[in-house]
């Protein structure tokens, strides 16, 4: 029996310490291919999140009835059904975005992050944990996609959230931020090499933050110890006052 992780650990893993894109390096095909703008990244990230939550939930529900010998085909079937549903929904409601993302929506089915979570987590845990894991992993993946997309869009074409109307309707046309007409885009950032270099830089940033955090606990424990001391002093003081009052 595997250990039951706490919800806060699930969320922390999904968003940061086991981020599927930046740490596990799973699902790189869509990650590298569609992130030339922030909105594309957001669209594909959300579609992936929906599929991940639904597949995690279903796999968790059927985990006691699926024989281990056939589990992978079953998982793929489950994921493929949800991907088809998501694809058809996007075709119905977000047609422009659907056209932009193109082949990468059906390709969600091959995203290793999804079958990875089904195999490694959802097939061993109860429904509630599996859903929380799906939400956390999905959002973590989406955040990485949006960060990479925003970075490449900003450097490559000098805009941010261009084409937001593809997702949020006509009102979002004014959301586009621009570095100004004079900015000459660094074309490489939008081209495929830019995706690899950008992902590398994102991982560098994440590792740098982790390193900073790791070097801090020494200071934190010291301040925590000081806090303990001060509370003890306060208690002593109050006790002393009480004694004096008595």
């Amino acid at each position: 029996m595997t250990m039951t992780p706490s919800y806060s650990k699930l969320v922390k893993d999904g968003l940061w310490s086991n981020n599927q894109a930046l740490v596990a390096l799973l699902g790189l095909c869509p990650l590298l291919a569609v992130t030339n703008t922030a909105i594309n990244g957001l669209g594909l990230g959300l579609a992936t999140t929906v599929v991940l939550i639904l597949s995690n939930a279903s796999v968790s529900l059927i985990r006691n009835w699926v024989r281990p010998e056939v589990r992978l085909p079953i998982f793929v079937l489950v994921i493929a059904s949800f991907v088809t549903a998501v694809e058809l929904s996007m075709y119905a409601w977000f047609y422009d975005l659907y056209k932009v993302l193109g082949i990468f929506i059906p390709l969600i089915v091959t995203n290793c992050a999804i079958i990875g979570r089904a195999e490694a987590f959802a097939s061993k845990q109860n429904l509630r944990l599996a859903v929380v894991d799906g939400v956390a992993m999905g959002i973590g993946f989406t955040l990485a996609l949006v960060a990479l997309g925003a970075m490449r869009e900003l450097i490559g074409s000098g805009t941010l959230f261009a084409q937001a109307h593809l997702m949020f309707g006509e009102t979002a046309r004014g959301w586009t931020l621009s570095l100004g007409e004079g900015y000459q885009g660094l074309l490489l950032a939008i081209l495929p090499p830019g995706a690899f270099i950008g992902l590398g830089l994102l991982i560098v940033i994440k590792n740098l933050i982790d390193e900073r955090l790791a070097s801090r606990p020494a200071a934190q424990t010291r301040s925590a110890a000081e806090e303990v001391v001060t509370t003890e002093e306060k208690e002593l003081e109050t006790a002393g006052r009480k004694e004096a009052q008595a």
């Binding site: 000459q184 660094l186 074309l187 490489l188 950032a189 081209l191 090499p193």
Partner: peptide, 8 residues
């Protein structure tokens, strides 16, 4: 090549 691809 970086420059050539970015600023042809």
């Amino acid at each position: 090549v970086f420059l050539l691809i970015s600023y042809p």
